[in-house]
Design a protein around this nucleic acid. Structure first.
Lengths: 343, 343
DNA sequence: GTTAGCACTCTGTCGAGATGAGTGCTAACC
DNA sequence: GGTTAGCACTCATCTCGACAGAGTGCTAAC
């Protein structure tokens, strides 16, 4: 659709604008050297590109800035791939060489590294406990009324919550049930846990145990999925360094949204379905507050199942090439690491 | 030292400035009505107060603003106490009426409530695991190499970490040790755990167990105090709404500091020593970035031992009365709740 | 098809003047 | 002697016009 020259010029404009944040004029493109035409020629092409919707003019007599469509084209066709490979590899490799002794720590640390390297905001979705399976279940009495329920998953994550135990349930009975549960439900995926609890154990328990109803309620509560996904946010304040966000009020609405877990989940969730690196530009994001932001996401997985995702949030004027490169490497390495860990 | 009239005027100025964020002039004080003097008289007193160091003038012909010393005097002698009791009690009571089933959730929720009610930033230090004691210890093999170590404290908190198990240690041996540990070290405070491990179990284990050295290393790692205190931050973006922080760069340095756990720990730590509500104004805070901020802290406790602390960070021009009231209530209620829970 | 030239447009900046809030001082008042 | 009215003075902020600069669109020449 676009001529080779138009692509070159569009590419030059996006590149320039990404690094300068100022509308770029025909003269500065001409001077760059990689497009060997005079300002006048470039002006003509720019007018065409604007008509086609790839560029915008803040006002007459200002330079052009890329439109969302322009960014989209850039990301889809012009981004110079693999550029990050050489430059940032060192930092990333160093990170993965460090021994960290919990998945959670790795993820958290990765979030920090990412935001530091990119100077944007990184959003990491912790491993989805949902798809891992039960390794061990335990109910530990604290005092007369309360007990801690502990669930260990196949990936070594530990979930816990306190539950109230009705006084009519005896300790020995509880122990019996917990043993039963461990013998029958180990290796069952967490999301199937509750249904299997009823189908596999229901009958047997009803026969052997006196306070079936009450006990079931306790277990129900203990296995309840408060297994919400954990979100790790890092470098939120990097938003403040971007010239387009010098208006405090706009930043405030964005940062406020970033404090809301559900919003973040919604933003990252659909990405975990697709494969590879996804870019959502400006209004392609659900929230209108993110109209001037782009979100680049990737996901990491275990045994082919997507476990969680990684996102980088920045202004639409974002260093797509670099970020996409880094994100690709990190998601790949994270996947590899998990695989190696729980092989 | 100050005359009654000077106190009245200082009080009026601080009050006014707190709500307006603009230097306050003699006329507006006179018009308030609670100080029954003409602007001229008030001007004279203001000049005196400035000489004494309680007030400052941004420039000639601007109104006065309180100096740090002025705020200090206000907080120490003029703050109208108990004002919050009636107004905000409802919200707080409603919060504590809600059933939440984990200490962690309560703290996290409390942070949110606090920042919402005050429109400042709230910083909560989670319960100090350090002073609670061991309830149960467990080592759960994941695969050939790794195991999850789980520590349950007397307050029902669950800590976990993955450790590597050298292949030469057998499962049955490990079980033996864990049982020994549970029988001998239950109810020992966590901070004494390691030393007691050696003094109480050292000999016995050396006799019965073959790979003493290796096993000790595993336990050492498992019991290591990664029990860092958890920090819950809420409403950090509220900083952005304050007119004194409309300069993006200053806010950035503050928000960046708030992302650093060690900084927050340092800021809140000394407060847990003292009793009651503490106010640190401007440069009384350690970091120079917080020169324009005040931090109000309180702590909550269990069995008389301070477990953690609560802080509210805002501009020096802060609603001291309200915040101190609210903080007082919350810390009291939090303490009461913990006591009731683990009575 | 490409480029030089030129008129035109729009923004950002700078300085001058106007505005207004607030002070400090003096003198009058109770 | 404490209190207040009056007045000159100061300083920040707002407004407005002029001006420079960057960039465009168009036309005509190459």
């Amino acid at each position: 659709m676009l001529t080779e020259r138009q692509r070159m010029i569009l590419n030059a404009i996006v590149d320039d604008y990404i690094s300068s944040a100022e509308p770029v004029g025909s003269r500065s493109i001409s001077k760059r050297g990689d497009v060997g035409y005079s300002p006048a020629t470039i002006r003509n092409e720019m007018a065409d590109l604007e008509e086609l919707g790839y560029l915008e003019q803040p006002h007459t007599s200002a330079g052009r800035i890329p439109s969302h469509k322009g960014y989209r084209y850039y990301v889809d066709h012009l981004v110079p791939w693999n550029s990050a490979e050489s430059a940032e590899m060192g930092t990333i490799r160093a990170f993965f060489a460090e021994k960290l002794n919990a998945t959670e720590q790795v993820i958290q640390h990765a979030a920090m590294i990412l935001s530091n390297m990119t100077n944007y905001t990184s959003i990491l979705l912790g491993p989805e406990v949902f798809h891992t399976s039960l390794r061990h279940f335990q109910l530990l009495p604290l005092d007369g009324n309360n007990a801690v329920a502990i669930i260990v998953t196949s990936t070594g994550q530990v979930e816990n919550r306190t539950v109230q135990i009705p006084p009519e349930i005896s300790l020995s009975e509880m122990e019996k049930v917990v043993n039963l549960l461990n013998s029958k439900l180990v290796n069952v995926p967490l999301y199937k846990l509750k249904s299997q609890l009823y189908s596999e154990l229901g009958e047997e328990m009803q026969r052997h145990i006196s306070h079936y109803e009450e006990l079931m309620q306790v277990l129900d509560k203990a296995l309840e999925s408060d297994h919400e996904q954990r979100i790790y946010l890092s470098g939120a304040t990097n938003m403040l360094t971007q010239p387009e966000f010098k208006d405090v009020d706009k930043v405030k609405t964005i940062l406020d949204l970033l404090e809301e877990t559900p919003t973040l989940l919604k933003m990252l969730a659909p990405a975990s379905g697709g494969t590879g690196i996804q870019v959502r530009i400006g209004t392609e994001n659900k929230h209108e507050a993110f109209a001037n932001c782009s979100l680049i996401t990737a996901s990491y997985s275990l045994d082919g199942k997507a476990l969680g995702s990684i996102g980088i949030l920045g202004p639409t004027r974002m260093e797509y090439a670099r970020v996409m490169g880094i994100l690709g490497i990190i998601s790949r390495d994270l996947t590899a690491m998990l695989a190696h860990w729980y092989k």
